[in-house]
Amino acid sequence: MDILQIFGDYIHLLGMFILLMKLCLTRNCGGISGKTQLLNAIVFTTRYMNLTTTYASLYITIMKIIYISITYCTVLSIFLFFRKTYDRERDAFRMELLILPCAVLGLFLTEYLDTMEVFWTFSVFLEAVSIVPQVYMVSKSKQVESTVVSYISCLGLYRGCYLMHWLYTYLKLGFFRKMSVATGIIQLIFYCDFFARNLPILKQKNNGKGFE
């Protein structure tokens, strides 16, 4: 484990925490895509199914439990506690368009035909595209919450750290997982695309206009 990975994990955690805090403090989930959070919940559930069977370290086990808990709390906040403020109309991206292709890719591109491995591969692909409903929602409403900007910035940093971590591992140990690196790059491109697309809105915000 290197510092890049740990920094990435904490930044990821920070992003999820900012989102959950925003939901709990404002009791409002306007502008936040419930579908992206639901996809994240699926990602963590499928990836960490080996939580009880495979033990790596105390750090990993605790972080997995925290990740799953925060994501489930976020999903519950959006779909149960504060569902009255959930913008169903604008969160219109069809999740099955992401889940089904990822399931097919997971099944066919898995390196080892083993249940946990297929689930892992599926989760890696789904994680790469899980931000799509959020990006779609922002582009549909033409408004972007500052929380969403912070959240996506954290996720982008997290992915960047992990990519550097994989590069470091490759240089040091001489191997890398193609699947992780390829999907990691795709994921990072989605985040960059979000910022590139919303640059005009973000600039406006900096000038103090149209802050949502």
Partner: peptide, 10 residues
């Protein structure tokens, strides 16, 4: 091996 290495990641 690579699989066990992957368990060290989140």
């Amino acid at each position: 091996n690579i699989i066990s290495k992957r368990h060290d990641e989140l």
